[in-house]
Design a protein around this nucleic acid. Sequence first.
DNA 1: GCTTAACCGGACCGGTTGGTCATGTTATGA
DNA 2: TCATAACATGACCAACCGGTCCGGTTAAGC
Lengths: 250, 250
Amino acid sequence: MRADAMRNRRLLLDAAAAEFAEHGMDVSVAQIAVRAGIGKGTVFRHFATKEQLITAIFADQLDDLAAIGEALLRGTGAGAGMGAGEGIDASAEAGAGIGASVQVGAGIGASVQAGAGPAMAARGADALLAFMSAGVEAQVSDRAFCQAAGAIARADPQVRRASQRLAAVAEALTAEARREGSVRDDVTGHDIVLLINAASQATAPLGDTVPGLWRRYLSMMFDGLRPAAAHPLPVPAPEETHFTAAAHRA
Amino acid sequence: MRADAMRNRRLLLDAAAAEFAEHGMDVSVAQIAVRAGIGKGTVFRHFATKEQLITAIFADQLDDLAAIGEALLRGTGAGAGMGAGEGIDASAEAGAGIGASVQVGAGIGASVQAGAGPAMAARGADALLAFMSAGVEAQVSDRAFCQAAGAIARADPQVRRASQRLAAVAEALTAEARREGSVRDDVTGHDIVLLINAASQATAPLGDTVPGLWRRYLSMMFDGLRPAAAHPLPVPAPEETHFTAAAHRA
DNA sequence: GCTTAACCGGACCGGTTGGTCATGTTATGA
DNA sequence: TCATAACATGACCAACCGGTCCGGTTAAGC
């Protein structure tokens, strides 16, 4: 690939993401091309169709979030133990876009306050909440895009791979929090993924009139995940097969 | 208004709602006209613009839900006391469309299990959960429409009136549940409206692959509303002014 | 039954969009 | 330095969409 082609591809992806975020899903390809400072034809050289462009951006975003989750997971010491209190920069592995400012182990407030052990016992809960926060934050900054892109691109293999990676890390984080007792037993990684979705859409009617408002609803939902208030759930958790079925249906 | 015009208007509204629900927000007016069995020109005779058509449908849906909420509110005996255990048909006042099957006082499972009194003490919680269920159910059957219609039509006076009526009944139901102690103190009616939104979007990635799945997430969120697991919320509740500001911004 | 005005229908219009193509341009390798 | 192939470009195309309009039709009142 030639050097200028590479540069233009990057310009194109950035411009498209920004344009989608600002003006919704139905910006014209021409508009994107103008913002990127390239010709319209060049857009279709890189991505044969507008849908493929959307798909590529969406897959990138999912991968970024998955990377953040994986960094957080290492911070919990779930796998091999690691030095205590060591700060981890979650954005190290993540792309530049989404959540460059996730604090790990910074005491975001998820720590269970009742219970036996000291605060350290809730590292899993902190990680899980940080993961969800990163996910919601990423979606909130681009609600319409995530919504539409999800509907359009879920069948794309690249998106599906990223999606499964995300599901895996969500499940791992959930398992850790469950094991330490800060999250109810009947919640799964898939639940977490869907709740991220839900929280990001909660404040949609308000647009960005109240910038950080989503934290309020994510907080409420997280309280719903705690064992203290847990009531039996009326419907079992969705399985991976349901997600693949939904993807296949499109 | 002539009889055939009336009939066509009804056909048109039904067809439009169905078409929006099935094929998303960007179905053409022509497509709607075909489904309704009328000419395209007739559509624009009834509604000068596509936006007005969307607005009318949306306002109707909001009103239906508000009516359900008001019926439920009467069932709690919040205002004047009423005979105990009397069955109320919530759909009596509501339009045909949305929630013709809401059970009031049928023990949907919201009853707090701990606490002093017997189950009867949680009538307010039952009503609140039934209200939220009706709201989510209505939106789930037409997710894309509610999403887009909300964004488009929030500035319309008819929609704004319906929206405020909805907010009022949500606040009343919440106040009742709060007073009986089954819901935390820091939750408001506006929170409820936004949570209905959130819950209906939770399962969007799955489409209708798992039909009743939204109940799972509404249940989790409702658990988050209980005092038992309540943690301090990081952001204060939105005020009415924020909603009007958001509406004015469009 | 007849008049009349409201109503219906679908051809039509301006504008926009995703996508193509022939032409001109530039990085690259020998 | 030059040949060449990959690349960029913007004019162009067909399709479609929301909205208009006028000729024909039909319901309503007398």
